[in-house]
Each structure stands twice: as C-alpha cells, then as structure tokens.
Design a protein around this nucleic acid. Structure first.
Lengths: 217, 217, 217, 217
DNA sequence: GATGAATGAGAATTCATTCAT
DNA sequence: GATGAATGAATTCTCATTCAT
C-alpha cells in the first residue's frame, strides 16, 4: 500500500528527476547533458520532465537553485560572534572549505554556470550566492575596519581571493592529479591543504622572523 | 609556384579554421560549439574541417594545443636569474597575471577543458601546462629551499594556490561584475588587483606591526 | 437522490466538455485541437473525456452531431406553405443566411469537416445535413416544376449554388476583411449582403429593362 | 553523367520537396501533415527540408505562394478587351471556373488556409490573391458603371459572390457526392455546372417570359 | 463520479559527418 | 585544393491515452 502510494507521489518523482538531473548536469554540463538520460536515471518517463519543469533549461536552473539553496542554508549562522575576527574568519573559512570538499558537484556546477555567458540573466542566482557569502564577507570587512586585518586591503578583492583560493583547490582536481598525482579526496591531504590556505591568507609566504634585509627576500 | 600558392592557401585556410574554432570553443565550449558555425565564421567550406583535421574533437584539441603553446612560449625565459627569489617570483607572477588579463579566452578554454572529465586522456596537454609553469614552480621551490619563503609550505600546494589566485580574478568575471559591478577590463583595477594578490601572497592579511596579543587577532 | 444529483452532474460535465471541445475544434480544427486544452477549458479532468466519449475522434463527431442537430432543429418548419414559391424560398433563404450569420462556428465546423477526406465515413452526418436542407430543396424543386423558376435549371445544382452563395459570405470572412476591410459582423452589412444574394439568385446581374442588343450586353 | 548531375541538383531537390509538400498539405492540411512523410515522398533526406526552408511553416507558405503565383500567372491577360462586358465576364469566369476544375488542390489549399485564423499575417498572400482577381474585378465593375450590369449591385459583394459560386462547386465535392452522387470530375457535368453558374449569375432563377403577377412568383 | 500521475509512440528539429564532383 | 548536396542517428519536445486510487 505504502509502496503503491509512493509510486504515485509527484513530489517524489520530481525530486528523483532533480537528483538525476543534478548528477548529469554536474558531470557533463548543460549542453552535453541528455534529457533522455536524466529520465532514464530517474527511472521515470521523459514526459514528466516536461510536465513538471517545462524544458531542459528550466530543470537545469532548478538544479542550480536547489544546490545554491543548500549551500546558503549550510552557510547560515555558522559565525561565532564571541570570537575575535581572525578566529571567526578561520571558522567560516573552515566551514566553507569543507563544504566544498563535501560537495564537489557544487563546485563543478558553479564552474559550468560561470562559463555560460549566453545563458541569459542569472539575476535570480546572484542573491543566493551573495547570501551564502554574507557572513564571510562581513567578517573580513569588520576585520579590516577593526585593524586586525591589513587596512590597505580592498574588502571585495579580499573576499574574491579568499573564496577563489578555496575553490581553486577543488576546481583544479584534474589538473592537480594530472600534474602531481595528488588525491583531493584524501582527508589528510584536505586538512593539510586547508592549513596551507589559512597560512597563506593570514601570514603570506615570506618567512616571518627574518633578519635578512627586505630587498633580498 | 602554384603548389606553393596552394600550400600557402591551405595553411591560411587551416589557420582561419583554427581561429574561428578558437573563438567559438572559447565562447561556447566543446559541446555547444557547432561545426557549421566554425566553417561559416572561417568563411570556408565545412568539408575542409574534416579534410584538415578529421573531426570536431581533433580541431578542438588543436585549438587547445595552439593556445597552450602560445602561453608556454610567452612564459619562457622571463625569469631574471640575477634577482633574489622574491623579486623573481614577483616578476613571474606579474607576467602570468597580465598574460591572463590579455588572454581571457585562454582562461575560459582552460576552464572548459578542466570540466570535461570524459574527454579522453589529456596526456598531451599536461606537459605543455607543466612547461608553462616550470619557471614559477622552480622559483617558488628555490625560495622555500633557501628559506626566503616559509619552509613549512608545500611547494606543490603553493604553486596551485598562487596560480589559482591569479586565475580566480579572471575566471569569475561574471560573478564579480554581478556581485559588485567591478570591471575586469579596466587596466587600473587590474593593477590594483595584481597588487592585492601580491600582498596576500607575500604578507597575508594580518596587520603587520601589531602589539595586540595573538589570541585577540 | 444522490444518484440523480450525480447523474445531473455527469450530464453537466459532459456538456461542459462538449462546449469546450466545440469551441476548440471550431477554432483550430481536429488535428490542431488538443485534448488537454479541451479538458482545461471545460475545467474538468482530462480522464473524463475518455470516460464519457472514448477518444478524441468520438468527442469530435459528437460536437459535429450536436451542431448539425441544432441546425436541423432550427431549420424545421420554417416554411410557410401558404406562400408562393418565391416568397417561400426567400423566407427559407433568409432563415438560412441568418442562421449562418448567428452561428459562425457552424460554418467553420462544416468547412473543417468537408476538408477531412480521410476521416472515415460520414454516413451518420449526411442524413442530418440533408434533413436541414430538405425544405429549401423541396421548395426550389417545386418552384422549377411549377414553372416559377426557370425550367432549365438542375435542382441539385441550384440547391448547391444557393447554399454556396450564402456560405461564401461567411466562409471567406478572412479574405473579405483582408481584401476590402468589410465587417462581416455588422448587421447592416449583413442585411445588405443578404439582399445582394437574393437579387443575384432571383434576377441575375444583367440590367433588366434594356433596349441594348443582347450581343452588346 | 547527366543522371549524377541531376542527383546533386539542389534546385531539383527543392522542387521535389515542394511538390511532395504540396500534395500532402493539400491532402491533410498543415496540422496533420508530417514532415517525415514529405521527405519520404520527395525521396530525399528530411534534413534538407530544414536546410532549404527552415521549418514546416516556411515550406507550407512556400507551397502556398507557389500555387498562388501559378494561379495569378494563369489569370493574367485572359481578358479580351474587344468584347463587350458580358462576353468579357463570361470568358473570365470560364477561365476561372476551369482553372479551379483543373486545380482541385488549389481549392483545397485555399480552404485550409482560410480556416487557419491563427497562422499569423497572410499579408504576403493578399496581394497575390488580389492580383489573380484584378481582371474579373475590373470587368464586373466596368459592367456596372456602364449600365450593362445592374447598377444597384455592390461591386465587392458581386465579386465575392461570383468567386464563391465557382469555388462552391469544387469545394463541396465531398458533400455533393455524399448527397447526390454527382461526379465533379466528369467533364460533361463540369460544363453543365458552369452553364448553370453563368445562367444564375446573368439571369437569376426566375422564369423570364412570365405573365404571372409578381406577387405569385 | 472524479482525479493526479504516468507513459509509449511519434512529432519537429539538429548535428556531425560523408558523397560526388 | 575546394565545395555544395546529402544523410542517419540523435535530440528535444508533444500527444493521445491509460493506470491506480
């Protein structure tokens, strides 16, 4: 009975389609993705895609929105306001870094999407992205204002760089493994990478306690 | 004579095809690119693509190789070996940053390609990428070995981060302009961005001369 | 009681379906009509079309029959047997002309149907059409027999011509409005058109009291 | 050689497609016509329809234009200006009537098209139709102005009626044969029908030399 | 009596590629 | 060396119809 009930559950079917579409869009991108394959993987009739979503483009955007919402939800209220800025930033960055580590599909989806110039207005996505970064953005900005972070840094630039540094680690997995046989999936290497990013961000690459003249660095 | 002419024409036609293909692959990616459109933009008969290259895949890889070679050529011998490591690195990074600024198509092409898991082995591309980064890679490594750069940094990680930081600035142009109305094309903003990247890399974000206790940072 | 209610509801639903189908078939023809649209316009579930009628074809024929019956009903007993043939014919034609004027959908439906060669046998429709024209047909025939109408006229031809003349006025509305900006809906123009048809039928187009030699006409 | 040449003749292929499309659109109308069937009947690959025309709609309109042009061409310069109006009109009507008789597809095509309200602007067709009727239109109008035809007739109405009378005979073939088993193809019956139409137009249906009082007619 | 969910067959349209010259 | 014509296999999308409740 329950099974039969489930078998006719539109919501569930829709979700199955979204899940299947998600996998395929992440894997192959919008253009190479095949509607037939999505339906097949979802185990439902192709027609339902058009019934529930309208067309390929719409289900694609729906996938995008779902993933962005998930990111946004997971990014909310992770900031410990009792901590000093550096600790705060560190926490937020850790959360962000490990969110990407745990959601490689999200990284790919963002990458595909950011390449599609033509695909009309992303106006509806921009607020979601912004919302997902609002805490980190605020934290960095406050750090600068309070003089904890260098006052000569442009907050926007900084946010971009920090986000980019994290993304880079997961976005270039192919390149990485091709060049150096690194394994992005390995937890230990992940933690090492995260520490590296933190070090870079907070301390730069120059050796700290150095008596050498600046010029010779 | 006629043969030479023909040969020259053939070369010219081939180059026209490569140029047209380049633009279109950069713009739309491999999957959305249309063979017809390439031929049309090149102003030559579609059949010639198959005559000269074989198929869509081959001309795509040809474009990729051409662009990578161009990058590699431009990256060679830019290192001033008389300079201390930091200056060297700065010079190489400047060169790299501005190469990306001047070749946005190259950035996109890399991004498309790195998303295409499925596309066979990239074995023939890896050496080219590596070659383009060899100087920078060596410079960073030497800096670490010589103790100018922090000895606790993983050289591979570092290279990736540094490259990623530069790429990030050009790869997320859409996001950037969407979020903050920044203009990536503006030379002044480019230089500012480059300085920002340099600062981040060499000095990190923490305010330098600080009497505050570490914990409160 | 409940049963009656249900029965009434069923009847009502069926009629709603017929009405919706009627509008849509009239507007778009059988092939372009969409079952979904019919159900939607009727405000009932699509399934009921199949429950009540069986399939698209059946509901189409049902619509056709309903419209033909309506025409037939309205055509019956309109003949004033006390009048002489010409008056009779005039009355019947007026009735016919204004029926068409008041039921433009009927005209379209006939036109669509007459174009559908393939659509099975129309055997069930023919009697209805015949019945609707039986009075006019008889009247014309009697007029010929009685010598009031020209004896050299073929009665069947004549019926066809007379019917065609009336239909023409409503069937070519698009052409008419395109060519001359005539407004078929305007009552005054309708009456004028009807008078024109009558004149043509009874008197032809040649000027009556004419001293000119036949040849020069 | 010639055969091979022909096999690669784009013009010929296009014409074959037009011919096939013509037959099928005439037979089944736009909505029921199948692109596959057109290609199959033309004996060429379906793709060529899209290559040469763009889509189904375009090839449909192309067919329409071709047929209208043919009609227009055949209608030109058929008027014998030396004849008096009645003879002129008779000649033109004969030509028109027999054109329809010889081109039943044209009649059907007009009928299908005039039912398609939705199918955008027919603006490009209107001039062709008008051109095809310009001689008849002018002749009737002159006849009225010269007093040969009744001065109380509206020229536009008249043109419509006259055209409608001819069309009627061929447009209702199904109805005709259903009702009376007439054979529209039979040349003798055609000539009889034409004479009937002429009589109706020029003399009306009332018996001419009649002593009966008008009222009893 | 009524309905939302689901489907298979088939529709138009597109694409990379090859043929014939 | 170059080209216009042609194609088969897919691809997105649609439609009348049935299932399960």
């Amino acid at each position: 009975m329950t099974i039969k009930c489930r078998k006719r559950d539109a919501e569930r079917t829709k979700q199955q389609l979204l899940n299947a579409a998600s996998e395929i869009f992440i894997d192959q991108g919008f253009d190479a993705a095949r509607v037939d394959e999505i339906a097949k993987r979802a185990g439902v009739n192709k027609r339902l895609i058009y019934l529930y979503f309208g067309n390929k483009e719409v289900i694609y955007r729906e996938v995008l929105k779902e993933r962005l919402n998930h990111f946004m939800d997971s990014s909310r209220q992770y900031m410990d306001t009792d901590q000093p800025p550096k600790k705060q930033a560190e926490g937020l960055l850790r959360h962000f870094f490990y969110y990407l580590a745990g959601n490689p599909g999200f990284v790919r989806l963002l990458a595909w999407e950011s390449l599609q110039r033509a695909r009309a207005d992303q106006s509806d996505l921009v607020p979601l992205i912004r919302a997902g970064l609002v805490d980190l953005s605020g934290c960095l900005q406050r750090g600068i204002e309070q003089g904890v972070f260098r006052p000569d840094l442009n907050p926007k630039q900084l946010l971009l760089s920090v986000v980019g540094l994290c993304l880079t680690y997961f976005q270039r997995r192919l390149l990485m493994s091709a060049l150096w046989n690194m394994d992005v999936e390995d937890p230990q290497q992940q933690e090492e990478a995260f520490r590296h990013v933190l070090t870079l961000i907070f301390d730069g690459i120059l050796a700290k306690p150095t008596g050498q003249p600046e010029e010779s660095r």
